[in-house]
Design a protein around this nucleic acid. Structure first.
Length: 352
DNA sequence: CGTCCACCGGAAAATAGGGAGG
DNA sequence: CCTCCCTATTTTCCGGTGGACG
């Protein structure tokens, strides 16, 4: 640990600074939409923005702006990836008591409905992971509650209409809010702001920070990178050092994302990363699975089935860790062509 | 025109566990 | 404790896809 640090907290991804730089317009949009006199017709929202654009931050902050005459709930589709888990968590947030597994969905829905007495705002973050399962039923239930606003959040779907049943969407009818990727300049301001609060003065060179934010505008990656640099630095953080820790920093970011999943997810990701280094030929699902399977064997672990791994690949795709182009037949058969996301060219090239 | 590639992805079943009521 | 219902996680099964190539 170096002596550059005053306090580490502002560099943590989960830290909510006193001021929220760069998303004033979006905050205003939410505030305006929710400043209605009639609390029984709160608006629904779907918020879209790539990873590291401040969605979670924006909404967690937004939830704190409500007076005690409101109930606010935050759930994440990564941890609550089924209707049951989401409802159980909701009940726990509302009452403070855990239900455990084994109950009927309908019972929990009724219990939750009974608890929703105040006007309520529910944020469903990472909604894509819920929609892979029975998230549609959950959203149908939530959007039909009285006095309740539902805000879905996605890093993958600009609009959510195609992902849900017609009946769910017609009951949801969200307004849309999009968070565009930060410009390198905006990203630099945000990171500089955090660094100023966390570090000794003059310990971070301007060029070093610029290098980070021209490489990635994902604030989450940027903060991880900065932390990595701080931990490695002897006296000062310069561009050379930042470049040195570039790969390690991204690995930490990946590990942070995948910590919320299983060891098989992590093994799968590592398998793909290794295969991509070793081979030139495009990777398809079968190749990846066979290699993953072999790695399990040599680690003395039973490999999961190909069907299951197919789902896990979709998870990695939703996390923006891999890219897959789908072949639904043709000379290659029905398969996916898989590659790692080229994270350090985000922003420099933008394909339309 | 038929066949083949190779696995997508829906559906059902297997397995392991919990809660409530008799 | 038994039964019957539930959930969670995973496996098994398999119809279907569309361009190339004979």
């Amino acid at each position: 640990m170096s002596n550059l640090i005053d306090t580490r907290t502002p560099l943590e991804t989960t830290h909510l600074p006193a001021q929220f730089v760069g998303r004033e317009a979006e905050q205003d949009a939410l505030n305006d939409a929710f400043s209605v006199e009639d609390e029984s017709c709160l608006p629904n929202f779907h918020v879209y923005g790539p990873r590291g654009t401040g969605k979670t931050h924006l909404l967690q902050r937004f939830l704190t702006t409500f007076p005690p005459t409101f109930t606010t709930c935050y759930i994440s589709g990564i941890h609550q990836d089924t209707q049951y888990k989401a409802l159980e968590r909701l009940y726990q947030l509302l009452t403070g008591t855990k239900l455990g597994t084994g109950h009927h969905i309908a019972d929990i829905q009724r219990k939750v409905e009974e608890q929703v007495t105040l006007p309520t705002v529910i944020v469903v973050d990472e909604v894509d992971f819920l929609l892979l399962d029975d998230g549609d039923d959950l959203l149908y239930f939530l959007t039909r509650l009285e006095n309740t606003a539902v805000i879905t959040v996605s890093a993958n779907q600009p609009t959510i209409k195609d992902e849900m049943d017609d009946r769910t969407y017609s009951s949801f009818q969200p307004q849309h809010l999009t968070l565009n990727r930060y410009t390198p300049n905006a990203a630099r301001q945000i990171l500089a702001d955090r660094a100023r609060k966390a570090l000794q003065p003059e310990s971070l060179q301007r060029d070093a920070l610029t290098y980070i934010t021209t490489t990635t505008q994902n604030i989450s990656i940027g903060l991880t990178w900065l932390r990595e640099a701080v931990e490695t630095a002897e006296e000062q953080i310069n561009t050379e050092l930042v470049q040195e820790v570039e790969v390690a920093a991204y690995h930490k970011y990946v590990r942070m994302l995948l910590n919320r999943f299983t060891t098989h997810h992590r093994r799968l990701y590592n398998t793909i990363a290794r295969l991509e280094q070793e081979r030139d030929a495009p990777l398809t699902t079968g190749t990846v699975y066979r290699e993953y399977s072999g790695r399990c064997e040599s680690a003395g672990v039973a490999p999961l089935s190909e069907r299951r791994i197919s789902d896990f690949l979709t998870h990695l795709e939703l996390l923006d860790l891999i890219e897959a182009s789908y072949h639904y037949g043709g000379p290659m058969g029905k398969t996916r062509e898989i590659q790692l996301v080229d994270w350090n060219s985000h922003g420099s090239e933008e394909t339309e």
